[in-house]
Simulated scan of single mutants.
Amino acid sequence: MKRVLITGAAGFLGSHLCDRFIAEGFYVIGMDNFITGDHKNIDHLLENPNFEFINHDVTNFVSIDGELDYILHFASPASPIDYLKIPIQTLKVGSLGTHNLLGLAKAKNARILIASTSEVYGDPLVHPQSESYYGNVNTIGPRGVYDEAKRFQESITMAYHRFHGLETRIVRIFNTYGPRMRLNDGRVIPAFMGQALRGEDLTIFGDGSQTRSFCYVDDQVEGIFRLMFSDYSYPVNIGNPNEISIKDFAFEIIKLTGTDQKVVFKDLPKDDPMQRQPDISLAKKLLDWSPKVDREEGMKKTFDYFKGLSEEELRKSEHKDFSNHIKR
């Protein structure tokens, strides 16, 4: 049985990846320190004989007993409300954490997949964004702690690939959604759905003309899985190119939830990207991958998940205005 280490295992994407690799017959070692992860995302796996969990911060030395075939590094805050609140930890997990895991992969002769992000493109001057675009990032802006952590992560990964001959893979993840997202994590979909479920008006930052492209979690996991077992070492975009403005998306949420909330507008946070749409030509060619779940279907599944949360969980998720964290 092949053994795989998944960091950030108690997070949204990490926990879904644990499910997928177990279903594919792997022995999964999950690792998380619960800074942003949630125990409930992996509770269903704790009795599974093909899963073990290690509570550990990957910015400290990482040691795994026995053989290890694969590593997926998904440990990192991924939402603005998190990485603006813990900027140093965000930088450390992208740098020290990645260095530790690359060292582990080298010691174990394991293939490693690094979770990068569309945020490496910053506020793009090219649309849609392809892997050949170098980005437009403010290195000293408040969002730079996340953007630059991921850009450095890609650089050190390629250095290990070129200098040590390490088997590496890099996925650039575009906005992904689905069950197990946190309602209070500051991202668009959980923020809108939490507000709708609590009967609050939906908050848009800026005039709502900025665009996003949302990929359902099952499609994202499929793309990541295929990339891990491909022969390609350079970054690959995985996302859904179906683009929509935030304003139009807010009205989609109101229609989906059957509520009659208004839309209210607040100042746009500094360096918030105005456009986000993946060019997935490479993923189609290399991985024979493209998203299968359309937004209407995926949003219904996600809303059904959020509707199942307790009243206490909904209260805990009350909208937090993270724009205060985003100052020059």
Score class of each variant (00 low, 15 high):
Gln275Trp: 11
Asn55His: 13
Met299Gln: 11
Lys307Arg: 15
Ala105Asn: 06
Gly25Thr: 02
Arg20Asn: 07
Thr257Trp: 02
Ile88Phe: 10
Phe34Tyr: 15
Gln220Ser: 10
Ile22Val: 10
Ser118Glu: 15
Asn55Ser: 14
Trp289Phe: 08
Pro179Phe: 04
Glu297Gln: 15
Asp248Gly: 05
Tyr121Ala: 11
Val58Gln: 09
Glu243Tyr: 02
Tyr146Gln: 03
Thr157Cys: 12
Gly94Phe: 02
Phe163Ser: 09
Asn175Gln: 12
Leu113Tyr: 11
Ala107Ser: 15
Asp82Thr: 07
Phe303Lys: 07
Glu200Thr: 01
Ser317Tyr: 01
Phe61Ser: 13
Asp267Trp: 00
Asp185Ile: 11
Ser95Pro: 01
Asp43Met: 06
His127Asn: 14
Val145Glu: 05
Glu119Tyr: 12
His99Val: 02
Pro235Ala: 04
Glu243His: 03
Arg180Trp: 13
Lys284Ile: 11
Arg198Glu: 05
Ile29Cys: 01
Met193Gly: 06
Thr211Val: 05
Ser323Asn: 05
Val188Tyr: 02
Lys255Gln: 13
Arg295Ala: 06
Arg315Glu: 15
Ile112Met: 11
Leu113Ser: 08
Ile246Glu: 04
Ile6Leu: 02
Ile326Met: 10
Asp123Arg: 01
Ser230Thr: 06
Gly206Pro: 10
Ser15Thr: 04
Ser317Asp: 09
Val221His: 00
Asn41Lys: 04
His319Leu: 09
Glu154Tyr: 10
Gly178Tyr: 09
Leu256Trp: 07
Ser116Arg: 11
Ser323Cys: 02
Asp32Arg: 07
Gly308Ile: 00
Asp82Ile: 05
Phe61Asp: 14
His325Ala: 11
Val58Gly: 03
Phe205Leu: 10
Leu309Trp: 09
Leu183Asp: 01
Ala10Asn: 03
Asn242Pro: 00
Glu297Lys: 13
Val28Ser: 08
Lys262Trp: 03
Arg182Asp: 14
Thr176Phe: 01
Lys106Ile: 04
Arg212Gln: 12
Glu243Phe: 06
Arg143Ile: 05
Ser323Tyr: 02
Ile326Pro: 01
Ile71Arg: 07
Leu256Tyr: 05
Gly14Leu: 05
Gly199Leu: 02
Glu318Gln: 12
Phe51Trp: 10
Thr139Pro: 10
Phe34Lys: 03
His99Asp: 08
Glu119Ala: 13
Gly25Gln: 01
Tyr177Ala: 02
Gly11Trp: 01
Gln89Met: 08
Gln195Glu: 14
Val126Gly: 07
Tyr232Trp: 13
Asp260Lys: 13
Asp43His: 11
Arg20Ala: 12
Thr203Val: 15
Glu148Asn: 13
Leu101Asp: 05
